[in-house]
Amino acid sequence: MTGLLLATVARTIPDTAVFIAGALMILAGGIGVIACKNPVHSALAMVLTLFGVAVEFIEQQAEFLAAVQIIVYAGAIVVLFLFVIMFLGVDQRDDIHDEPLVAQRPLAVLLVVISVISIIALGFEASWAVGPHHVTGKTFGPYQNVGEVGRSVFTTYLFAFEATAALLIIAVVGAVVLARRSGAATSDAAIPTSEPTAETTEEVAS
């Protein structure tokens, strides 16, 4: 009996260690994001969180998503954030102690604490959709994750996948349009044609 228990614990230790390492990365990174004054430090802390989430994905045998997480988030989105931070200039005057709304921060902390506690309590109390909260379902076997995800995406969710392509094109075109038009507005001579119309509509409205 004791031997069996020890064997179970010994088999659990690596998984538990990986889980705890990932959880520490996630929580430390998250606190870093909201606590750092310098936005560059916040972005780097977010990289830590994203890597932690990827570790938890691998721990749950979602290897494809872990790789995509690293490539898309850490490789593309964070770089985009850093580019924009550099472009705008590092904004040092985002003062933590500057409080425009009375008692907003204490209320925000209170609200978040209540929400998280109630989410966790509800999860334990109501056993959401998964039966007892310690259930671990069957897995998909080793080295099958990419194939399973691909089969699901390209059969069941094929229409959503096609819509995704359209969404990405629209997003890229929209970003280009946003960036170009504001650049033209500051430098071009086309702006006087639009400004008087804005003023006249304002006069008509008033």
């Binding site: 088999r11 659990t12 998984d15 538990t16 889980f19 959880a23 996630i26 929580l27 998250g30 606190i31 994001v33 909201i34 969180t49 989430v53 938890e56 721990e59 749950q60 045998q61 907003q104 921060r105 925000a108 902390v109 609200l111 978040v112 604490v113 929400s115 998280v116 989410i119 966790i120 999860g123 334990f124 998964v130 909260h133 310690h134 259930v135 671990t136 897995t139």
Partner: peptide, 24 residues
């Protein structure tokens, strides 16, 4: 593999709380 799913859900709730707090 042997980690209970509820641990991950608690971690997820905590991360969501941190994000919401930062947003506020």
């Amino acid at each position: 593999m042997s980690i209970p799913g509820s641990w991950y859900l608690i971690l997820s709730a905590l991360l969501f709380g941190i994000g919401a707090l930062g947003l506020l």
